[in-house]
């Protein structure tokens, strides 16, 4: 059973070495990590059985908040931008959440989409504030007051994003494995019982919603700083769809899957765009189709199946209890009896 944990540990250790092996990968990896953190937000909501088609809203709000800060007299300090962006995303998550947690299923998904598209049109139309479709240029921020050259800043950003991804992945796992996290996940299976336990499903969902919005915010700030520009595309519905796409690709509801999916997505996208420029979306579409048809548990599901076959006798209830990931069964499996 040890191999089950050793392989991911080795993979985690390899990631920080990648920029040395292939320096051109650095920016691709930062983007993958930024998106992975945002997808972690979407995937958290999937644990409660809710799919949001509008989480790019929080991604964009955080990105624009940090861009405004960088443009202001205060100037761009990376950590302040990150804190402000995440706070703005969390606060907007609370405000939007108060409304959308009243709905479930398709209504929940579409209302989120509606909010993100309203924000997108605000970004497009309030040109004098937002720069319209041209967006806002985000100057390279200082890091604890130190101005870094582009290459140094990207190196810092890569390692910081990597550590942040590990930290937030751990935080998400702890949250999902905590009593409040379990209550949040029961919104998916039985809201009636939840009410008869004296718990408000709406409030419980709201807690997870704000958490997921905050995660999207972190991703938004990271992407804004690495790309050096924020545009209304950050809130565009395709960005939200991309997050759901990556979540399903990695393994719907899986914390590790959010990052594995984001990494695979960015690599396939980069290579497909380079070698099959006209049909890269088709390549990605086919990739997802294969996953949905043959491995509904996503890439993490494939890994789990592989490990189970290799170590058929391994695993105990304690393993299952210890790792919230394993405690989760994807939506496609066992519904109510």
């Amino acid at each position: 059973m040890l191999a089950r944990y050793v392989i991911p540990a080795l993979l985690i250790l390899i990631v920080p070495l990648l920029p040395f092996l292939a320096p051109w990968l650095k920016v691709v990896l930062i983007i993958a990590l930024a998106k992975g953190i945002a997808v972690l937000g979407v995937t958290t909501l999937l644990r409660a059985g809710q799919v949001s088609f509008g989480h790019a809203l929080f991604f964009a709000i955080a990105a624009y908040a940090s861009a405004f800060l960088a443009r202001s007299a205060v100037g761009g300090e990376f950590f302040v931008m990150l804190l402000l962006g995440t706070f703005a995303a969390g606060l907007s998550g609370l405000l939007v959440g108060l409304f959308v947690v009243r709905y479930r299923g398709i209504f929940f998904g579409m209302l989120n989409l509606a909010f993100s598209m309203i924000f997108w049109s605000i970004l497009e139309k309030f040109y004098y504030l937002t720069g319209g479709a041209d967006g806002i240029h985000v100057r390279r921020p200082t890091v604890l007051g130190i101005s870094l050259a582009r290459a140094e800043f990207e190196t810092f950003l890569f390692y910081f994003a990597f550590l942040l991804a590990l930290l937030l992945g751990w935080v998400a796992l702890r949250f999902l494995n905590s009593p409040i996290g379990h209550l949040f996940q029961t919104v998916k299976t039985n809201e009636t019982r939840l009410q008869y336990l004296g718990i408000s499903p709406r409030r419980t969902l709201l807690v997870g919603y704000v958490f997921s919005a905050g995660l999207c915010g972190v991703g938004g700030v990271l992407l804004a700083t690495v790309q050096g520009i924020v545009t209304p595309d950050y809130a565009w519905w395709i960005r939200s769809g991309e997050m759901v796409f990556i979540a399903v690709l990695g393994g719907a509801g899986s914390v590790a899957g959010a990052f594995v999916g984001a990494l695979a997505y960015e690599l396939v996208r980069t290579y497909a765009a380079a070698f099959a420029a006209d049909i890269w979306q088709m390549v990605l579409g086919a990739f997802l189709l294969v996953i949905i048809l043959f491995a509904p548990g996503g890439m993490i599901g494939i890994y789990d199946t592989l490990m189970r076959r290799l170590f058929r006798n391994g695993g105990s209830a304690r393993d299952r209890d210890a790792e919230s990931e394993a405690a989760y069964r994807p939506a496609v499996e066992g519904k109510k009896p």
Binding site: R174, F175, N177, S178, P179, I180, G181, H182, L183, L197, G198, I199, D321
Partner: peptide, 14 residues
């Protein structure tokens, strides 16, 4: 947990 109001996000349910 619902009865006792265990809301701390870093305590494992188990």
């Amino acid at each position: 947990s619902a009865r006792e109001g265990h809301w701390a996000p870093f305590t494992a349910l188990s």
